[in-house]
């Protein structure tokens, strides 16, 4: 293993994903983020593999969500946020001026902490993305995109007979799966999930986790979670953030069974955080 690790400029140990079967999808190098005067992320460098689930864990305010939002440039919407460093997806720089965030966000879907379906019908929720991106030429095509997305999100069986009822009338777990379907509908390569289960009950959580596991076949998934158990269950790679620093990053089993950093060990054993 030693040959896979090297030491970054600021002396931290950085793990690379190249020993895995999957190629690198998202690569970050020296990402700094500050909100006004407050620096939220300090030189984060990591590579995220494709067709795998990568979990970001860490105590509240450690910067994991901030980092997640850098990947699809959602931080652009926060006026005081300053992002520097490099993030590439398939080798393409995300932070380039030339990159249109609209196209980027079509490639990188996002699911938020609280289910946020549009106050429209289930059908319109899923069809919204394809419509604005012009992904379908006909009504039938759109119908099939909606159906496939809902099937992939495991929601089709429950809502196929009421596609035109409001999406906001669904239960919390169903809403979250609807939001995932909405993200899938624009055919993204990467799906970011910001604590997708924190507002859900255990049964709905189990369903979402199952879904995440299935989606791994086709997408690069990055998930921020507060639940160590969830990270252990669904992810192949885990990154531990603390106070704006990436402390440790590696295969999930290793992080949970044999962490190298003391802080990681303390956190996963519940001594702080």
């Amino acid at each position: 293993m030693a040959d896979d690790t090297n030491t970054s400029a600021n002396g931290r140990t950085v793990y690379h994903a190249n020993r895995h079967a999957h190629p690198v999808k998202v690569a970050a190098a020296g990402v700094d983020v500050s909100y006004g005067d407050k620096q939220a992320l300090h030189g984060v460098t990591l590579d995220i593999p494709d067709r795998a689930v990568t979990a970001f864990i860490g105590p509240s305010g450690c910067g994991k969500s901030t980092f997640l939002r850098c990947i699809n440039r959602m931080n652009d919407t926060i006026e005081t946020a300053r992002v520097s460093g490099s993030i590439t997806i398939d080798g393409e720089e995300v932070n380039d001026r030339g990159v249109d965030p609209v196209i980027l966000r079509a490639r990188v879907g996002m699911v938020f902490q609280k289910p946020n379906p549009f106050p429209k019908s289930i059908y319109d929720n899923v069809a919204y993305g394809p419509r604005i991106h012009g992904l379908s030429n006909s009504r039938d095509e759109l119908d099939s995109i909606v159906e496939n997305s809902l099937k992939k999100a495991g929601l089709w069986a429950e809502v196929s007979d009421r596609l035109h009822t409001p999406g906001t009338a669904l239960s919390g777990g169903q809403q979250q799966r609807l939001v995932i379907a909405r993200a899938i509908a624009v055919n993204p390569e990467v799906i970011l999930m910001d604590e997708p289960c924190s507002a859900l009950d255990p049964i709905a959580t189990a369903k979402i986790e199952e879904l995440i596991d299935e989606l791994r076949e086709n997408y690069c998934l990055i998930i921020v979670t507060h639940s160590m158990a969830q990270a252990a269950r669904v992810s192949q790679m885990t990154a531990f953030f603390h106070l704006g620093h990436l402390v440790e990053y590696g295969p999930t089993e290793e992080i949970f069974t044999n962490p190298t950093d003391r802080r990681t060990q303390d956190y996963i054993t519940g001594r702080f955080g």
Partner: peptide, 17 residues
């Protein structure tokens, strides 16, 4: 709610959209 804006931006809508 800002979540609606985020949702729209998240699927790739422009700000105007």
């Amino acid at each position: 709610p800002p979540s609606i804006r985020e949702a729209a931006l998240g699927v790739g809508a422009s700000r105007t959209q």
